[in-house]
Design a protein around this nucleic acid. Structure first.
Lengths: 343, 343
DNA sequence: TGTTAGCACTCTCACATTCCGAGTGCTAAA
DNA sequence: TTTAGCACTCGGAATGTGAGAGTGCTAACA
């Protein structure tokens, strides 16, 4: 969509003003606050054009204009510049993230908390996978006659455990033997690698002998795959209530209910840069393929380590969010996570 | 407080009606719905008396009456009977809780979810402590030169882990030696027991030799105490929004914010039966020592195993909740947790 | 031809007014 | 002690009104 220069300026003025005030913007406001060197009447003509193009809309006849979803899209794609954070904020972020951190995971979680606090929106992260992490320990511990605990430890310090219920007691000797085999099969390999191995070798060797083992192997395999798929973490979920467009309990409930649905949120987060694998993705309103988010926008950034995608961080707010600022924030923090700290 | 019989009936009628409708109750309504054999005028006189006693109040002159906090208290203490659940619901609960459960902890969590779902309120549990559980395994695993993972396993299958950051690398030999000592010091004892031991013996033996170890011992001690104090779990937090008295976002936010504060909620839960150690505790409105809950009531029940208190389950709703029903529910489920299943 | 001033028009919002019904308290009679 | 009757109060819904913001259109202007 090509736009004359002045139309762009008018559109931008409307969007910026609306983001700041949450009120429809009239022609007089624009001439006053943003010096375009023309009169309100001219602005009105431009606005009529913009409305015809679907970039802005009128809540009712005698109100000003508000940006439409398409308007935001245009703004985000062509007009907006990513805000550069002030030195102060950068310093604050760095300081907040520098304190004693025990695992990369903790760093990310803290970053997400910081993000929600600074932006006053809901922040989230999805850590896509540990597939590049190396398994350093695998333990099979009996806690009672019929129960075992499986413990997996990754080289980043992440621990995963799973209780297993046995139908019949298993002699300690067997347990140890099995544990040793598992150890040899998977220790020192990345999650991705041992997913491929899929324990087939162990299976073939044991399964025939002791039928019971199938169960154990199934659970282990589940843990190796399911548990390490993604981890979603949210922070500042209640911030949505600070937004004037969510003064209505029903609307709030709709969004918060969705946020409770881990699976769906994971899906939404993962979908974010379909098509255009750029660093920062912006999904506006109904572009999020979920009805509950039709009044929200989701901005996400990926973070990497050694060039590998490690996860995404994102912000969820009303479509009227400050895209420029939030993009800047996400950009800075995702970079920080990617490069700033070696761990 | 002594009340004539008829006053009791009037009070009860008002409360029951208000619980059901959330609307102020007038004298005519009472004569119509609850046959007391007297005219509205008489009821009005009784109501005037009840109001004078502080048991009910009028939102405004030309409205009916609503129960005051004191009124609820009186109702709960002297008038209400714990509702007996229907056979259907009991069956439903039993069925829902009977499915494959791997640990007592899981059973409780599932019960809490069920509770919130059936009651349409926020349900919670606090598992007071694992202090009577026996530690079956303690592991100290190196994941990189400077990091160790401490893993504790209890006989109920519960696993707790903690990453430890070292200032300097520790030879594997030392780690193993330390782990072995820990094992001997704590394995096979209950959490309560090893809290008392407080690792003093190990300390005295090692601390002088390697200063670094103090750090490790501190962390272990922290884990042994802090991590095993209480676990709070919430379910159905958003249910509060279904209540007509929480149509206002600000009110909702106040309560939900509080629910996010684990520590405070734990405190509130633990305080619930101060004074009267009976099975079911009811805290109405401001009886909960937290301003954010001044419009809410918290009903809790303890559950036991082998006569030992294991934890509490509770329901949080508006002061206008159905005390009779919720008490019945909590009673049944806490009994079920205590006796119904052997684990 | 693009811009602007002017103006009539529309619509929302805030506020005042009115009206109705629910519910009360009081009084006097049963 | 209970009840019928009645005047009274008050909130909430419905209605009306005016102000203000903002528009679109037209005609004049540069």
């Amino acid at each position: 969509m090509q736009l004359e220069d002045r139309k762009k300026k008018v559109l931008e003025a409307i969007i910026i003003n609306y983001i700041a005030t949450a009120e429809p913007v009239g022609s007089r406001t624009i001439t006053k606050k943003y010096d375009l060197g023309v009169s309100p009447a001219t602005i009105r003509n431009e606005m009529a054009d913009l409305e015809e193009m679907g970039l802005i809309e009128q809540p009712h006849t005698s109100a000003g204009r508000i940006p439409s979803q398409i308007g935001y899209r245009y703004y985000v794609d062509y007009l907006m510049e990513k805000e550069n954070l002030t030195a102060e904020i950068k310093k604050y972020i760095r300081k907040s993230l520098r304190e004693e951190i025990k695992a990369k995971e903790d760093l990310v979680l803290r970053a997400v908390r910081l993000l929600s606090q600074i932006s006053n929106h809901t922040a989230m992260t999805i850590m896509s996978t540990y597939s590049q992490n190396v398994l350093t320990h695998i333990q099979l511990l009996p806690v009672s006659d019929y129960r075992l605990v499986l413990i997996l430890v990754l080289d980043n310090g992440h621990v995963e455990h799973q209780i297993m219920e046995l139908k019949q007691a298993l002699p300690e000797k067997d347990i140890n033997e099995l544990a040793e085999m598992l150890r040899q099969a998977v220790c020192g390999r990345t999650v991705e690698q041992w997913r491929k191995i899929s324990l087939a070798s162990i299976r073939s060797q044991w399964e025939d002998q002791i039928h019971l083992l199938r169960e154990i192997l199934d659970i282990i395999e589940d843990t190796l795959t399911v548990e390490f798929e993604h981890k979603l973490y949210l922070s500042g979920t209640l911030n949505i209530m600070n937004q004037p467009e969510f003064r209505d309990v029903e609307k709030v409930k709709q969004v918060l209910s969705l946020l409770e649905e881990q699976r769906i949120m994971e899906e939404l987060m993962l979908k974010t840069d379909e098509g255009e694998p750029q660093t920062i993705s912006i999904k506006i309103g109904k572009e999020n393929e979920n009805e509950s988010l039709s009044a929200c926008s989701l901005v996400t950034a990926t973070y990497h380590i050694n060039g590998r995608i490690m996860g995404k961080i994102g912000l969820l707010g009303p479509t009227r969010m400050d895209y420029s600022r939030n993009t800047g924030l996400l950009d800075f923090i995702s970079r920080y996570l990617s490069e700033g700290v070696e761990m």
